[in-house]
Amino acid sequence: MPITSPEKYWWKPADKEEKIWISIALLWCLVLTIMMPLMHLIGTQNPSVNPMKIRPQDYRTVSEAFIEKYKVGEEQGIPVVEPPDGADVYLRAQMWTWTPILKLKKGVNYKFHISSVDLMHGFSLMPLVMNFQVVPGHDNILNMTPTSAGTFHIICNEFCGIGHHTMVGKIIVS
């Protein structure tokens, strides 16, 4: 019984069935283990590979400069920015907006810098469902190439206060 002490010598060899099961499970674990680094080499969708730190106030300054430089319009008070091909793109999360609205080109690679100037936020690109944690003080650097045209939305999926559910951003790919 599992509620009483076992017999004196309980270190006994496993049965054949047990050995088969454990071997299969171990093999499967090894396959999964190998897949993890392998996907970094052959996969095209990986998390940030070079994490950087940036103070929130510095991030605000660079992202403001980015907006000013490439601003092409405004939509409901939110700046619309069209960066040149291959540019560094700054997407700022703050309670409760994603700034700016981005206009990007299909097939062009952009280096995204996503960070927050206040609380933790969650970058969730819809309808693709790609999610990244946005941490104040840290720059989530992601190389992204839009592969299809259309309007994409960014919703916030990390609780960031009472207006969390209103935090929606936009990326237009042409």
Binding site: E75, Q76, G77, I78, T97, I101, G122, S124, M126, P127, V129, H153, I155, C156, N157, E158, F159, H164, H165, T166, M167, V168, G169, K170
Partner: peptide, 19 residues
Amino acid sequence: LGSPRRHWDITFAQSVIPF
């Protein structure tokens, strides 16, 4: 399908940018 956790309104009725 992308529904976020810890979210009061998944219809986004109050957001500036509709979704």
